[in-house]
Design a protein around this nucleic acid. Sequence first.
DNA 1: ACTGCCGGGACGCCCCGTTGGT
DNA 2: ACCAACGGGGCGTCCCGGCAGT
Lengths: 210, 210, 210, 210
Amino acid sequence: MQARADRTRRAILEAAAETFEANGYLGTSLQSVVAGRRVSKGAVYFHFSTKKELAAAIIMEQQDLLPKLVAELREHQPRAILLLLQVSQRTARILCGDVMTRAGTRLACEYEQLGGAAPPLFGEWTSTIERLLSEARAQGDLLPAVDIRTVAEFIITSFAGLHRRRYFVKPDSKLDRQLVTMWRVLLPGLVTAGCLTEIEYEIDMICNTK
Amino acid sequence: MQARADRTRRAILEAAAETFEANGYLGTSLQSVVAGRRVSKGAVYFHFSTKKELAAAIIMEQQDLLPKLVAELREHQPRAILLLLQVSQRTARILCGDVMTRAGTRLACEYEQLGGAAPPLFGEWTSTIERLLSEARAQGDLLPAVDIRTVAEFIITSFAGLHRRRYFVKPDSKLDRQLVTMWRVLLPGLVTAGCLTEIEYEIDMICNTK
Amino acid sequence: MQARADRTRRAILEAAAETFEANGYLGTSLQSVVAGRRVSKGAVYFHFSTKKELAAAIIMEQQDLLPKLVAELREHQPRAILLLLQVSQRTARILCGDVMTRAGTRLACEYEQLGGAAPPLFGEWTSTIERLLSEARAQGDLLPAVDIRTVAEFIITSFAGLHRRRYFVKPDSKLDRQLVTMWRVLLPGLVTAGCLTEIEYEIDMICNTK
Amino acid sequence: MQARADRTRRAILEAAAETFEANGYLGTSLQSVVAGRRVSKGAVYFHFSTKKELAAAIIMEQQDLLPKLVAELREHQPRAILLLLQVSQRTARILCGDVMTRAGTRLACEYEQLGGAAPPLFGEWTSTIERLLSEARAQGDLLPAVDIRTVAEFIITSFAGLHRRRYFVKPDSKLDRQLVTMWRVLLPGLVTAGCLTEIEYEIDMICNTK
DNA sequence: ACTGCCGGGACGCCCCGTTGGT
DNA sequence: ACCAACGGGGCGTCCCGGCAGT
């Protein structure tokens, strides 16, 4: 009976993701999670002993999203700076299509309201970016003034802001186009002039292609 | 009896700001706003007929922060791009020292949980940045590829992310240093090479002084 | 400055009467009494130290309505049973036209919610009816089986029910016609057959005129 | 687990009836309903999503009291006018002994404070009386002048007034005796002289027996 | 083993009846 | 006469445990 249990757990997670994504952690009642969906409150509390734990599980789901993406794309792309662009683009694409991921990032942003007991999603993400930047430096693409740690954090928050920007600026902006803008603004301050001209062509390619 | 009323209104606003800043809109109960402070729930209800209205008032307080700053600093600084840097630095400084302002920006970020009826704080802020960027372009400092609208939005969200980053990355980072990093990363993608070298010296000055 | 005070007191009473009449004692908030009317809450609490007291004052206003009516009509009508009919008709007419009186009777019905501290409006009214019935008995119009006390109470409650019936039966019934029905049903059980035929004509006259 | 739920629902209804009967709709707080009784607010909210709904359920409980009584007594009593007397007596008896019924009638009287959304308890009761009066007319017992509709309404309001009279006249009067008085006063105006003498003996029997 | 109905307190927001300072 | 302020609940409802079924 493991299969049925797993299906139920999955259904709960998805139901919760939809509501959390739409209304945030505190804005979501268990009631509203199960309402109108084939999930019962009892089932929720069987699988997750607490609302907090439920949210944590959703965050956890995204924990290794970036590492996995890096591992997957690395074989086709040895240059770290380009890998970074590609990862960002794939992440953006996933965010657009997958509620669970959106819910995860949103909940990660609200982790303080979760009592601080949430898994450090963005910590993991930041580390991944840091590693890529280190590689890029080793490959001679980074400007010497760039502080990897700080820039990695800045990229993550900018990206998160990008994704959640629609909540307070323009709801209809395309995430893709915003991503190009972000990199066009960021890269000149990050990479060497030589690198910039070399990857110039790739930027548009990466961000506009499926 | 206008004076007393105003004082009370002020006290309520400040008490609320502290709690909203710490716990967000939904995480804040009216109870927790008045608890331990010289404010009574009755007084709150007298001045603000609703929790939402109270939050809106706090947001509104910051509405003209940037315009005012621009007006104040403009006379000493005719070059728009430098004005922009100064405004950002002053804003950062204010954010560090003033709970009300921090509460305002936080609430503005959560405006969807306010029922969408919140005043468009960041809209006003974005417009201000746009105007400065337009001037900078007229003064020949901006790169031709820069789309003012998009970049203005990006600056605002980056800045907001900067300020709220501590919520999910590092609580102890200094806002000042992050601001320098932000501009060091952003400027090369925004202004002409000539401009960049000209203002090079000012960047450190602006962000470290006063 | 007595005159102004009296005018204010009057205004308060009238404002309160309107709201009490419409929503009952507990359904009426002081707020709703003063809202939209030229009355301030401060003024209310200057003249009446308590909501209860305000309601009591409205009830009191009707205390001597029946005695006065009796005194006034008696000189034109020596026969007690006819006096009774006339008084009932006049009362009905007043109820229709005067909010204060309606509010008074409604509040009297709700006197238990007033903490039992309300003046016994209906007690006074019942006594008046009792006196008229006694006279009628002395004039030989009453059936011997009639117990004056019980019947007086019954008349009052029937009458009160009549007036408040619209709240749960038919909102549009005319009080006048209902009154005729009431007496047509009651009188045969109260007065002698002789009396009944003698006053037959008067019943319609009394209830349909002026 | 239907059984437990039903028992709880019952307990809630009874607890609520006691308080509603004593303090009316607005005078009753959910708090006061559950206080000191084996009922929790959570349970109340589970069964009735609203205070109004709770009150409506109590009213509804009495909806078919009269129809049932009529059906039950009809087989032993073919004469409609006597059936009417018996029904009234049984109802009075039930009112004296059953809080739920008392609460229901009280709430029905206050239905306007329920937002007007209450079930028309007295409408149902009035219809029942009307039907009995129609039968009585067919059996030749009614006076020709009697308007069935109006009289039915009058009986119901008189009866309701009777029962609730204690709230503003005399708390200790016996409902039974008052009922006899009511019919002794009403019947001469309703039924033919012949009928009256025929049922004379039954009146006392009916109201004093059982 | 897993699901779900039912029930339990605890607040949250709103607002109400009421009192000080003027 | 009154503006301003005060706490005290009321209703709704939320997050969460126990049982009874499957």
